[in-house]
Design a protein around this nucleic acid. Structure first.
Length: 842
RNA sequence: GCGGACGUGGCGAAACUGGUAGACGCAAGGGACUUAAAAUCCCUCGGGCUAUGCCCUUGCGGGUUCGAUUCCCGCCGUCCGCACCA
């Protein structure tokens, strides 16, 4: 039998399952590592090639760590609440739980076909009642701590679907899946006070080993800024309003103020003759979607209210306008406008002919009437602070404002509280009831979980209540403490809820007494390596950090942060082909000749690299790849494509290449009948060259795996195989080390060959090969000889020469003497282990 | 506009701390074996030239250096995130 993944892969998968090879328990004193994949949403479409990329990487890392004697926690589960199953239920009446179970079964079997070393005894789904119970328990803790509250909030309402959508489901004012328009509606919503943790979420980023880009995105999302709040009085009135500014040093340059159109003060200060204009502007702005409001951001619009504010630093009366470039949701919803030093204010002032007064010195020749100067400079036209640099001026003016009770220093964040409720069926219900007097009663922890009731119809009620309101028996309940009649909360939690803490439950998945056993938590936490797509850079990772910090504050967890190291795998794209009209062609119909791509022998098409999608005919299904090449080839190819973190295109021909490599490795051990070629695997020490290559390979593969550089590790394994193949007699130590090094990458074939070599135990816990750095060094090496930095010659010499000896040896080479003849030596440089460079003149 | 990543053969890529650019693989071409094909094995494979050698080449233009894919400055381009955040 030649190499046949179709028989050996199911064999070893069944073996690992039966023996529970990868089941793991806490072992005090044994080093641990917790390696986590971002668990998938089990969609109806099944796995795509992007999923196994990250899963293969973590699997290699885990298998390697086990062979080094580390206790490895490597679990998998399902983020199973979500909109698609609910939409499917609306169309077909099939309960989302049924759809979800089917999809989970599909995902599990697809994942198992790839031979990942998960501890399946820890599998969880966010929809399991035993899991929902603790998600709701965490909500009760949030509520107890005052971190959950209700408010009127704008939501994305999709009339076509008569439901609310999450922000992330809306792009450019449309539902991303169907393209139906989405509008804003105000509804009572549950919010989580994530802003209370803004400072800690920002500061603690510094202690994490995360990609800089992700940290930057989170910092940007939190958007901390330092400035001041300043009170402006309305002239000839007892009313006033506060503005937020990061440039209090420019107060003397404030020539007008702007309120957000929705600002509560607007209706109280608008002059009678301005009411019509103001009202019509407000109506116009309210009708715009967020997208429309920002798409033409450069053109400023607004109207004058007829009211004047008093500039607190100089008593100047300045007009108060309303304009949509001021957002009611940020800062105080009101600004002082300094057109000389803020480009937006400048644009507005030019449009409406408002004065521009310079109060910070700009570089020579810079005209603030033409453009705003927002850089550094000395304060001017500002009596209290003239001559000071921006920072000093800010400090001084803030102190002055505080002394006069006109304002105070203030830190502002862009981060908003988290809109936490959805008007959906397939999510965790809130464990709360509403009494007739309007009060809210949290349900006791021992009544959890509160599961969604059975329904025939998953749509919202005709009067716009969430679907849960259809279940009258469920809806009408009693206060467990007093017996008073009560209504259940009908909102459900967003999909993020379950994914905010799943990494904790994997540590203690079957505990029905508490969320997690503190002893186990202390042993396994934090997650040492977390691998997933960059699309979760902000939301999931920020939400989970927030919950984790709350759990830290109430003593449930012992670490400040959940995920110590984060790694984003790059997206896998694919080639697609389309003609001049933009029609896509299946890649099988396209041939390339003379650098052109021709479809159906007559249409010239262009080749591009794009995201996989059905409409582009470029989707690659992992099942097909496994069927054709085997799981080991699939795993190996995904890791060989390029660095783990970059975006890269799938090329099926490349899978054949790694499959050939596996076959060559197979033939080092077996003949074409699958019989071990005993007479060629000898118990003899390898010669010097083979020893060196073996130790070098072990060294580099080990280092590469530690650094998650799997593509170069695989190259090294290929070189090792290429060297072993032509050897008539192969030292057993080389062959066995090869199989050991390959086993994290291609575990099935490695188990099979390990067994054929006479081992009765699984390779999964075999000892990882060690290397001797001295034996990895070559005795001789080629040194480059450069003249004026250009490569001219090579000299073979002892690899360990120091600079002086190297120079002597090189100069003794007749060819070098010839090259240097007739030249004047300017400088000689010898770099041990590398090269010699002669700088010469003619 | 702000923030982040990146740009190397026909293609995916490699090059550790500034030291022989293109490892490894794909595709292509040639050869061996075969009645033939597949498979396998061997060879060639960045471009150019007046070819035992020489010149050019890591997006473009400068700079630092004995030496730059790597460091610095300025452009051009691609991808990702955020975006009227005061």
């Amino acid at each position: 039998m030649t190499y046949d993944p179709k028989t050996i892969e199911p064999k070893w998968q069944a073996f690992w399952d039966e023996k529970q090879t990868f089941k793991v328990e806490m072992e005090a004193g044994k080093p641990k590592i917790y390696v986590l994949d971002m668990f998938p949403y089990p969609s109806g479409a099944g796995l795509h090639v992007g999923h196994p990329e990250g899963y293969t990487a973590t699997d290699i890392f885990c298998r390697y760590k086990r062979m080094r004697g580390v206790n490895v926690l490597h679990p998998m589960g399902w983020d199973a609440y979500g909109l698609p199953a609910e939409r499917y239920a609306m169309r077909t009446g099939v309960h989302p739980a049924v759809t979800t179970k089917q999809n989970i079964d599909t995902f599990r079997s697809q994942i198992k076909r790839l031979g990942f070393s998960y501890d399946w005894s820890r599998e969880i789904s966010t929809t399991d009642p035993a899991y929902v119970k603790w998600t709701q328990w965490i909500f009760l803790k949030l509520y107890e701590k005052g971190l959950a509250y209700q408010t009127e909030a704008a939501v994305n309402w999709c009339p076509a679907l008569s439901t609310v959508l999450a922000n992330e489901e809306v792009k450019d004012g449309k539902y991303v899946e169907t393209g139906d328009p989405v509008e804003k509606r105000y509804m009572k919503q549950w919010m989580l006070r994530i802003t209370a943790y803004a400072d800690r979420l920002l500061e603690d980023l510094d202690m994490l080993d995360w990609p800089e880009g992700v940290k930057a995105m989170q910092r940007n999302w939190i958007g901390r800024s330092e400035g001041a709040e300043v009170t402006f009085k309305i002239a000839d009135s007892d009313k006033d309003f506060m503005v937020y500014t990061t440039r209090p040093d420019t107060l003397w340059g404030a020539t007008y103020c702007v309120l957000a159109p929705e600002h509560a003060l607007v209706k109280h200060i608008t002059a009678p003759d301005r009411v019509a204009d103001v009202e019509s502007y407000k109506a116009k702005v309210a009708a715009l979607s967020d997208h429309e409001r920002t798409e033409d951001a450069k053109t400023k619009t607004g109207v004058f209210t007829g009211a004047y504010a008093v500039n607190p630093v100089n008593g100047a009366k300045i007009p108060v306008w309303i304009a949509d470039y001021v957002l009611v949701s940020y800062g105080t919803g009101a600004i002082m406008a300094v057109p000389a030093h803020d480009q937006r204010d400048h644009d507005f002032a030019r449009t409406f002919n408002l004065p521009i007064v310079q109060v910070v010195s700009a570089p020579e020749g810079f005209d603030v009437q033409a453009a705003a100067w927002d850089g550094d400079g000395k304060a001017m036209n500002s009596p209290l602070i003239d001559g000071l640099d921006v920072d000093a001026a800010k400090t001084k003016i803030i102190a002055w404002l505080e002394e006069k009770s006109l304002g105070k220093g203030r830190v502002q964040t862009r981060l908003r509280d988290w809109l936490f409720s959805r008007q959906r069926y397939w999510g965790e219900p809130f464990p709360l009831i509403h009494l007739n007097d309007g009060s809210i009663v949290p349900l006791p922890a021992d009544s959890l979980p509160i599961l969604p009731p059975e329904l025939d119809d998953y749509r919202p009620t005709p009067d716009g209540q969430p679907p849960l309101a259809r279940a009258q028996d469920w809806l009408n309940t009693k206060d467990p403490a007093t017996g008073a009649p009560a209504l259940r909360e009908t909102n459900t939690m967003p999909q993020w809820a379950g994914s905010c803490w799943y990494y904790l439950r994997f540590i203690d998945p079957h505990n029905d007494k508490m969320l997690i056993d503190p002893e186990k938590e202390k042993y396994w936490m934090p997650v040492d390596l977390y691998v997933g797509g960059a699309e979760h850079a902000v939301l999931h990772l920020l939400y989970a950090r927030f919950w984790h910090k709350v759990l830290y504050d109430i003593g449930v967890v012992s670490t400040k942060e959940p995920f110590q190291k984060l790694f984003n795998q790059g997206m896998i794209l694919a080639f697609s082909y389309r003609d001049a009209q933009g029609r896509y062609f299946e890649p099988e119909r396209v041939v390339s000749k003379d650098g052109k791509h021709i479809a159906d022998d007559n249409v010239e098409v262009s080749q591009q690299i794009e995201k996989m999608s059905k409409s582009r005919f470029n989707v690659v299904n992992p099942d097909d790849v496994v069927d054709e090449f085997g799981a080991d080839s699939m795993r190996l190819y995904e890791m060989f494509m390029g660095p783990l973190d970059v975006t890269k295109p799938w090329q099926t021909a490349g899978v054949a290449g790694v499959r050939r490599f596996i076959e060559r490795a197979w033939r080092i051990v077996c003949n074409d009948d699958g019989v071990v070629i005993k007479d060629r695997i000898v118990d003899e020490a390898p010669d010097a060259a083979a020893t060196r290559l073996m130790h070098t390979t072990v060294r580099i593969v080990t280092e590469d795996i530690e650094a998650l550089r799997f593509n170069t590790a695989i190259s090294r394994l290929m070189e090792f195989v290429n060297a072993l193949t032509p050897m008539p007699l192969r030292p057993r130590i080389c062959v066995e080390n090869l199989i050991l090094l390959m086993s994290p990458f291609t575990p099935h074939v490695a188990e099979e060959l390990w067994e054929k070599l006479g081992h009765s135990e699984t390779i999964a816990y075999a000892l990882w090969p060690s290397f001797d750095p001295d034996l990895a060094k070559p005795a001789e090496r080629e040194y480059a000889v450069q003249i004026n930095g250009k490569m001219r010659h090579k000299v073979l010499a002892d690899a360990e020469l120091d600079a002086v000896a190297l120079m002597t040896v090189v100069k003794a080479d007749p060819k070098v003497a010839e090259l240097l003849a007739g030249k004047t030596m300017v400088k000689e440089i010898a770099v041990p282990g590398r090269l010699v460079n002669f700088v010469v003149r003619d």
